[in-house]
Simulated scan of single mutants.
Amino acid sequence: MTCPHCSHPLSFIAVDTVDGNTQTVDECLNCGGHFLPPYMANFLSVETAKNVDSVLPKSKTVPATRPVCPKCGQNMSSIKDDAVPETVTVFTCPNNHGDFFPKGQLLNFKKAQQAKIYYHKLWGIPLKSAFAVIIPLVIVFTAVATIPTIIKQLGTSQESRVKAGDILTAPLITPISSTQVLISFSTKNPARTQVRFTEGLDQTFVISQTPQTNHLLNVEGLQPGTLYKYVITLNINEKLTTTQEYTFATP
């Protein structure tokens, strides 16, 4: 692939994400920009972003043209919403192929993201949604012919266990400290949601008491270096759906 900005060949580097996985980032050694898979920037720590953005570009000239997605050739547009400050430049593909950060902008975004989270924590101001701090993802849900389900009667309602990818995005874990994390996700349809911990914590949290599509939970009082498991229950039109089990570990 070629760089969205300067059309030079991209190379790739391996990076560790905050959820314990290893992913690849496409890097331009000419202009210093980086092309990331959609949503991936949210899974990088500030330290990782600093290392990624430490590349010394061969060219100091920033192209004046709008970046072009290296996968589909469509013009990329700059992200203008609550998650990206005016001082930070991020471009996204209209077909959700990825996000492009010009030289230095990935680190700037992560610093701004961290500062905003700490600000809300310090002043006790609730974030209005998960997308006040994370780069949004164009949610594409694919229909499947058969979804294995287990139906349980719960009073007059039903609970269905389905593949989580069919109804919501993969939950994003944003660590605030070794004892606090943010859990955020989006649903295809407006839903009331709650998180029930199955390991590490014996507690259920109500996230959304009114139907909505963006969901954010702030969990405090966790133990450092501990594995936690949880499931998400969604109430969509009075039908209860419980996801598969998710895990995360505190630093």
Rank of each mutant, 00 (worst) to 15 (best):
Cys3Val: 08
Pro4Tyr: 02
Pro4Asp: 06
Pro4Asn: 08
His5Trp: 02
His5Lys: 10
Cys6Ile: 09
Cys6Ser: 10
His8Tyr: 09
Asp16Thr: 09
Thr17Leu: 14
Thr22Arg: 14
Thr24Glu: 15
Asp26Gly: 01
Glu27Lys: 12
Glu27Ala: 12
Leu29His: 05
Cys31Ser: 04
Cys31Phe: 06
Cys31Arg: 07
Gly32Trp: 06
His34Phe: 04
Leu36Arg: 07
Phe43Met: 08
Phe43Trp: 06
Ser45Cys: 09
Glu47Ser: 13
Thr48Ile: 15
Thr48Asn: 05
Val52Arg: 05
Val52His: 08
Ser54Trp: 01
Leu56Phe: 03
Leu56Pro: 01
Leu56Val: 15
Lys60His: 07
Thr65Glu: 14
Pro67Phe: 04
Pro67Arg: 10
Pro67Val: 01
Val68Ile: 15
Pro70Asn: 01
Gly73Glu: 03
Gly73Leu: 10
Gly73Arg: 02
Asn75His: 08
Ser78Ile: 09
Lys80Arg: 06
Asp81Tyr: 01
Asp81Val: 01
Glu86Asn: 13
Thr87Tyr: 12
Val88Tyr: 09
Thr89Asn: 09
Phe91Trp: 15
Asn95Met: 05
Asn95Leu: 11
Asn96Arg: 08
Gly98Thr: 04
Asp99Lys: 02
Leu107Ala: 11
Leu107Thr: 13
Phe109Tyr: 15
Phe109Gln: 01
Gln113Ser: 09
Tyr118Ala: 10
His120Gly: 08
Lys121Leu: 15
Trp123Arg: 07
Gly124Trp: 00
Ser129Lys: 04
Ala130Cys: 08
Ala132Gly: 05
Ile134Glu: 08
Ile134Ser: 11
Ile135Thr: 07
Ile135Tyr: 02
Pro136Ile: 02
Pro136Val: 00
Leu137Val: 08
Val138Cys: 01
Val138Arg: 13
Val138Asp: 14
Val140Gln: 13
Thr142Pro: 00
Ala143Ser: 14
Ala143Ile: 03
Val144Asn: 14
Thr146His: 14
Pro148Met: 13
Thr149Asn: 12
Ile150Gln: 15
Ile150Trp: 06
Ile150Met: 12
Lys152Phe: 00
Lys152Glu: 15
Gln153Tyr: 01
Leu154Trp: 00
Leu154Lys: 11
Leu154Gly: 00
Thr156Asn: 13
Ser157Gln: 14
Ser157Asp: 11
Gln158Gly: 04
Arg161Glu: 14
Arg161Phe: 02
Val162Pro: 08
Val162Glu: 13
Ala164Phe: 11
Gly165Pro: 01
Leu168Gly: 03
Leu168Ile: 14
Ala170Arg: 07
Leu172Trp: 02
Ile176Met: 13
Ser178Gly: 03
Ser178Arg: 12
Gln180Asn: 03
Val181Tyr: 10
Leu182Tyr: 12
Ile183Glu: 07
Ser184Gln: 13
Thr187Ala: 01
Thr187Pro: 02
Lys188Phe: 02
Asn189Phe: 10
Pro190Phe: 10
Val195Trp: 12
Arg196Ala: 11
Asp202Glu: 14
Asp202Trp: 05
Thr204Pro: 00
Phe205Thr: 10
Phe205Asn: 12
Phe205Ile: 05
Ile207Asn: 09
Thr210Asp: 09
Pro211His: 06
Pro211Gly: 08
Leu216Ile: 14
Leu217Met: 07
Leu217Gln: 12
Leu217Ala: 06
Val219Ser: 11
Leu222Ile: 12
Thr226Arg: 15
Thr226Leu: 06
Tyr230His: 04
Ile232Ser: 06
Ile232Leu: 14
Ile232Gly: 07
Leu234Met: 15
Ile236Asn: 06
Glu238Thr: 11
Lys239Arg: 10
Thr241Trp: 01
Thr242Asp: 04
Thr247Val: 04
